[in-house]
Amino acid sequence: MTAEAHTPPAGGISPAKRLQMNRLGLWLFLLSETFLFGGILAARFYLWGATRPHLDQILGLSVTAMLLVSSFFINRAEVAIKHDDRIEFLRSTGITILLGLLFLVGVVGLEWRTAPVNPATGGEFGIYGDVLFFMTGMHAFHVLTGVILLGVVAYLGYKGHFHARNFYGVEAAAIYWHFVDLVWVFFYPALYLMGVAVGPGH
């Protein structure tokens, strides 16, 4: 999807129309993904109800902040490339990738190891562990996809493929990134804030 804008118009489809179609396709894909994450959230409420495990609140808040701030920087990158500012585009995309990687380290590297539901740290596995690992795992997989997409976009941008009249690749990656961020906006309270904390704590 990243490089769709490189392709010349085929079958009499003008570049403007092609852009409209690409955008619609992307939004439909995100609509589909919404059902995936909606289903996961529904499973969380079905299984956990009004309870949640004891999780590290500082860590949760930190990774959430990183992801929210990263959305600001990817927007900055998109605006920069629309103004032909390649240096700023590369800098902002780089910061976004860095924040995304930090998020992954925070969730997969720290939260998974330290959560009181992890049997490796003497916690009790049970349904709290299952849902926690499933929700964060599915989301982290999408963050990883986003990081890879942004890596491709940054590489192509570095080689000079994107400019003020050809920015759809950046736009698509940015919208996908915002979407993954938005999913976390729902996942974070469902995991860390809602319901009564039960089970072993810190």
């Binding site: 299984l47 596995f125 709290y128």
Partner: peptide
């Protein structure tokens, strides 16, 4: 997405010992 989700959860339950559908584990 929902059939993918339900089947994915079964495969995870079989291979990673998760307990979404196992009452003994709170599923």
């Amino acid at each position: 997405q929902f059939i993918g989700l339900s089947f994915l959860m079964v495969v995870l339950e079989r291979n990673l010992q998760m307990g979404f559908f196992n009452p003994a584990e709170g599923g």
